[in-house]
Design a protein around this nucleic acid. Structure first.
Lengths: 166, 166
DNA sequence: CCAGATTGCGCAATATTCTTTCGCATCTGC
DNA sequence: GCAGATGCGAAAGAATATTGCGCAATCTGG
């Protein structure tokens, strides 16, 4: 039963830190309605138990010079576990690949890639990704614009469920 | 020229905060090789200029009870700007949709969705997404497993480019 | 080549926050 | 009831954030 050990205060802490990861502990404590020391203890517990896996600054990719974002749908020849793992390891080694998800259906993997410009991406696509062992097909789609990019999960939905189910 | 105003110290700051958004300012200053006050001033400037758009705790989705992650490829009937915007606004209103990217090619949008369970997602898919105005086709793929999920951009690539181009 | 302006650093002092310790209340199972 | 466990909050000391200021290096326009 996932999340069973979390009380409403813990979930509020997670929601607040997901929205603002640099909030001071005193501010966080004020928002969740307890004093600072127990609040900090809860945060540490959440970190150690893996509910919080890290904190990250979100940087403006375009402004930093990464003008190109691409989704790549990849099909493999072999779906044997050893071959899947080998491809995943290759993705982890490619810095331009930021995300790699294994999917069901006809597509085996979806990759989210970034690059400074189109030619850099094209070079990666033709010389690395398409050329990689066991890769059968690659279909790419350029991101025209991003309408929504929310981190993490919708805690509202979670609270609704807890309210309904107990 | 994006990122032109950033010197190597600024880029190092961004890289460090992207990797660990809760690093203390003194630790950050130590790592980038300057003292704390100017380091904090740089961080504030980076925040105000939009290079840093926010800080977020990354939460463990599965452990929190969001067992299902899905990529949805959406095609629309009309690609007129007003219709595109209307669909994007709908995506922003759906809490289960975490990301919404407009793409080139035959697929108009790719959506990253989360849900507590399959039936919740199926209900959203049939009653909300597929049923939405102007939606022509929806193809969904369940995420089996995630091999890589790195936030932001690869600063190594950026440094290589700066080293090569000046 | 040289004032004057600008920029950015580091030191020092203050304010805020973090973190630990400890005592107390509440809950739980027997 | 009652012992043990759990979790809270107050207080104090340590670490950190933040501000003000003087100084050096780099530009800029004579």
């Amino acid at each position: 039963m996932p999340g069973a050990k979390l009380d409403p205060i813990d979930r509020k802490i997670l929601a607040e830190l997901q929205a603002d990861g640099r909030m001071t502990n005193v501010e966080l404590a004020k928002r969740v309605g307890i004093s600072a020391p127990p609040c900090l203890r809860r945060v540490r517990t959440l970190e150690e138990s893996g509910f919080i896996s890290g904190y990250h600054a979100r940087v403006n990719e375009r402004e930093l010079g990464f003008e190109v974002q691409v989704f790549a749908m990849v099909g493999l020849h072999s779906q044997a576990e050893v071959d899947l793992s080998a491809f995943e390891q290759r993705c982890r080694d490619w810095p331009l690949v930021r995300e790699c998800h294994m999917l069901n259906g006809e597509i085996d993997f979806i990759l989210k890639c970034v690059a400074p410009d189109l030619s850099t991406f094209q070079r990666f696509l033709t010389e690395e990704l398409t050329a990689a062992e066991n890769v059968a097909s690659v279909k790419t789609s350029l991101v025209i614009r991003c309408a929504k990019d929310e981190p993490g999960v919708p805690f509202d939905v979670l609270e609704d469920r807890y309210a309904r189910l107990g």
